[in-house]
Design a protein around this nucleic acid. Structure first.
Length: 766
DNA sequence: GAGCACTGC
């Protein structure tokens, strides 16, 4: 019998020599099966990757240190090769541990896992697998190299806080600074202190590695860095002489210039959103056709839009070949892709030689003062500009036209895009962290600490939802809420819903709220689309309409065209079904009853609407003034019902799912509610003693007075008893958490102290 | 009376 290729190897003391020999052998050291011809062919290609030449340096650093930072430009091969290098060092197949490599996106986790399984000559899902939401392609006990989304690893950490099943964790694309990667960095830094056997590699594409080196290093010493060059073609960058007042117009002009004056090669234009892109495509097409008809030296041009809400079939058009010349000897055709940021990271288009970069993108911003996330067209960062330019050099040398001056580039653009953690509502993240056992959220070791006010807002919300007690400890309810991959308001609804006998319905609504907009509205069929929507609408509220749509969809599942005929997105409805199944499984695991009332009609809807109040009592608006003028409760923001809203009247009180800031402040997905429910089900938030003066308070006061008046009339007493007093008993959801640490918000303002600030959600006996 | 940049659990 031949000697095992890894005979005598000591984990983490292997050398590049030994590994290379093993790779060149005839036996797969991990499966002991003979290596195939395909393996050997792929191996030759692997050896040409830049990272392959750095194997020795990699092992020198990796064997000696716990946390390594690695920079590898596009095309270096780091994502596929480094995890394999680690496998030869960790020998995870012998120790029963795994190597994890995280990715910000699902498709990347899937496709890289497939590639690496081929490279290692194993079947995908066996030794090499992947794990993403809705799909676990791994085999316990067999899989030792697992590609996964960063969010998935964070979820795992909640049940296994030391991530004991892993010997090495690789955070890939760390420069993207997703929320999950940022939290994982903080956790891993901490876990490493107690787990000297765990190794961490932080991989990034930009040269901002120093930040990670400092973060993971000690006061005296930076974490070690391995730097590997990329393999791309040079891209020549041009700037405008003067700032461009209208970047869309300038982008169109630049495309037409390239088309007339530059060599063949496709063009990629970055714009900010759907409307802008469709508009630009139309204009480019008209002008290019005119040019071609006037000038015989100008070839045909096709213009393709690209953004995420485009149906997949139309997205595929970006891969179509450019148009053929009009005559056999005529000028060649050219393809123009006008895209959002999706083409910056998520999608790669081959054949792009020219990039037009106006320097803007839509970015999420969070304003903790008014608790609103919104999208804002903002200047991109230098890192983002470099990424865009790089898209021109994937197949051959290219050119990038930046529609701003070089001076503005140097002076005005930030180095890096703001990490997501600084631009998000953190309610969900804070609940996850508390569940992970992190109690001092302000002092958690973030790579970039969020504003204390953002954390405070999150704690406040979680406290009002009774997920955290007044000392910031996780309650039993909060612990359950953290099990759901949902916003805390939504998990609260699910857990509360059996008390109102409508958990099946709430489960549907929550699922529909968790997927992209289901309503289609083609520009030339708006009336038809609106009419179709009206037929499915329920006048009491958009939440109920969503439920009705899902139910109709399921009833008509046999009819493939049902969604299309009703101007609904079949893709979104399928996603909702998928999410619903996942959430239902979690509810079953947590023993949350799945119930429905047998009676239907308005009374039934009342229960659903009441349940909605239990989660969304902080997202309520009151009509003030005529027609469509509302003010949000407590914050007193002036808002209007979004035109997509299906309510047939303007009710005095509404609950909303979303605050959108576009041309105006709108509230979207709205359901009518009764003020009595607010007082009854969310008494602590609607404690009028704590309420800011204003019309909302007066209106609530009138309701309260009326209730009290009725009570006085009813029992003939003179003293006015507090109508809400009898509701002070805590429900079983509000059990105490098991922690006894100091308040999480030490040193920062906490929400106004009252008695226990729980929302009370016992339905009134009727 | 108008919009979903992009991800992720």
């Amino acid at each position: 019998m031949a000697t095992h290729p890894m005979h005598g190897w000591v984990p983490r003391q292997v050398t590049a020599d030994k590994v290379t020999t093993a790779m060149d052998g005839d036996i797969n050291p991990f499966t002991k099966k003979p290596l195939s011809a395909t393996y050997k062919k792929i191996l030759e290609a692997r050896k040409k990757l830049p990272v392959y030449g750095y194997m020795e340096e990699f092992y020198r650093i990796f064997n000696e240190t716990q946390i390594t930072v690695m920079v590898g430009e596009t095309g270096s091969g780091k994502t596929t090769q480094i995890p394999q290098f680690v496998a030869y060092s960790d020998l995870p197949h012998l120790k029963g541990k795994m190597i994890a490599c995280t990715q910000p996106r699902r498709v990347a986790a899937m496709s890289v896992a497939k590639r690496v399984a081929d490279e290692m000559d194993v079947e995908l899902g066996k030794e090499v697998g992947y794990s993403i939401r809705f799909e676990d392609m791994t085999e316990p006990g067999t899989t030792f190299l697992k590609y996964m989304t960063d969010g998935m690893l964070l979820r795992e950490a909640m049940n296994d806080p030391s991530l004991a099943r892993y010997s090495t964790i690789i955070l890939d694309e760390a420069h993207e600074r997703t929320l999950a990667t940022d939290i994982l960095m903080g956790l891993l830094k901490d876990i490493c202190k107690n787990r000297p056997d765990l190794k961490v590699i932080v991989m990034s594409a930009t040269l901002d590695a120093q930040k990670f080196q400092r973060y993971f290093g000690t006061e005296k010493k930076l974490a070690p860095l391995l730097k590997v060059p990329g393999r791309t073609h040079p891209v020549e960058v041009f700037y405008t002489q003067e700032p461009e007042p209208d970047y869309v117009e300038a982008a169109i002009r630049t495309v037409l210039y390239i088309h007339q004056a530059e060599d063949p090669g496709d063009i990629l234009v970055f714009l900010t959103g759907e409307e802008e892109i469709e508009d630009a495509c139309r204009k480019i097409k008209i002008e290019a056709d005119e040019l071609a008809s006037q000038d015989p030296h100008v070839g045909p041009l096709m213009c393709v839009p690209l953004y995420s809400s485009l149906p997949p079939q139309q997205q595929q058009r970006i891969f179509d070949p450019p148009p053929k010349p009009r005559r056999p000897d005529g000028p060649p055709g050219r393809k123009v892709v006008v895209s959002t940021n999706i083409a910056e990271t998520s999608l790669t288009i081959d054949g792009i030689v020219y990039v037009v970069d106006p320097g803007f993108s839509k970015q999420k911003v969070y304003n903790p003062r008014i608790r609103v996330e919104s999208l804002l067209v903002s200047p991109i960062s230098k890192a983002s500009a470099a990424q865009r330019a790089g898209r021109a050099g994937r197949t051959r040398p290219g050119k990038c036209f930046r529609l701003y001056t070089e001076k503005d580039y140097i002076k005005e653009l930030e180095e890096q895009t703001y990490p997501e953690i600084l631009r998000s509502n953190l309610a969900n993240t804070v609940l996850e962290l508390v569940k992970l056992g992190i109690h001092d959220l302000v002092r958690f070791d973030y790579c970039d600490p969020p504003a204390p006010e953002t954390i405070m807002r999150a704690l406040e919300l979680l406290n009002y939802l009774a997920a955290l007690d007044d000392d910031g400890n996780l309650t039993a309810l909060g612990s359950m809420m953290a099990e759901f991959p949902l916003d805390p308001q939504m998990s609260k609804l699910l857990i509360t819903s059996p008390e109102f006998e409508c958990s099946n319905e709430i489960l549907t609504i929550v699922s529909m709220l968790s997927v992209p907009n289901v309503f289609l509205r083609p520009p030339n069929q708006r009336k038809e689309a609106d009419a179709a929507k009206a037929l499915l609408s329920i006048p009491e509220g958009d939440h109920l309409t969503l439920m009705n749509i899902y139910n109709s969809y399921k009833q008509n599942e046999h009819d493939k065209n049902w969604a299309w005929n009703n101007y609904l997105s079949a893709r979104a409805l399928m996603q909702a079904d998928n999410v619903r199944n996942q959430i239902q499984r979690i509810m079953e695991r947590l023993d949350i009853d799945l119930t429905s009332r047998t009676v239907t009609g308005p009374r039934f809807y009342d229960n659903i609407r009441k349940t909605l109040v239990c989660g969304f009592f902080m997202q309520v608006a009151h009509k003030e003034g005529e027609r469509n003028a509302y003010k949000t409760v407590k914050d007193n923001q002036a808002v209007s019902l979004h035109p997509s809203c299906g309510l047939d009247t303007n009710p005095e009180w509404v609950l909303f799912n979303e605050f959108v800031l576009t041309s105006k402040s709108f509230i979207r997905t709205v359901t009518a509610i009764k003020p009595e429910w607010l007082l009854e089900l969310a008494g602590n938030y609607y404690d009028l003693k704590q309420f800011p003066a204003g019309e909302t308070k007066s209106a609530l006061q009138r309701v309260l007075n009326k209730q009290l008046g009725r009570q006085i009339q009813g029992n003939g007493e003179s003293g006015a008893p507090d109508a809400r007093k009898k509701k002070k008993q805590k429900t079983d959801h509000q059990a105490q958490g098991g922690y006894s640490t100091p308040p999480a918000v030490q040193g920062y303002a906490t929400p106004p102290a009252g008695t226990a600030r729980y929302s009370q959600h016992r339905p009134q006996a009727s």
